[in-house]
């Protein structure tokens, strides 16, 4: 690791904060995707008409 000079704390925290924020965002996006996909497949299994999902009309 290179020497970041007298303000290393601020630089490191800026990168750590951004990394945490981005990681949280990616994690939440993936979690939401998984959750919704599993919910969808459960519901489609229960759907009596078993339509193709693409032409689901409200």
């Amino acid at each position: 690791m290179i020497d970041l000079g007298p303000h290393a704390v601020f630089i490191v925290w800026a990168y750590v904060g951004v990394a945490l924020g981005i990681a949280g965002l990616i994690g939440w996006t993936l979690f939401d995707a998984r959750r919704t996909a599993s919910e969808l497949s459960q519901l489609e299994a229960r759907d009596p008409r078993r339509q193709r999902p693409a032409d689901a009309t409200p």
């Binding site: 996909a37 759907d47 008409r49 409200p58």
Partner: peptide, 12 residues
């Protein structure tokens, strides 16, 4: 997908 879940839930 979430919208489709909502539609399916309503239909069920």
């Amino acid at each position: 997908k979430r919208r489709r879940v909502m539609t399916l839930k309503r239909r069920l």
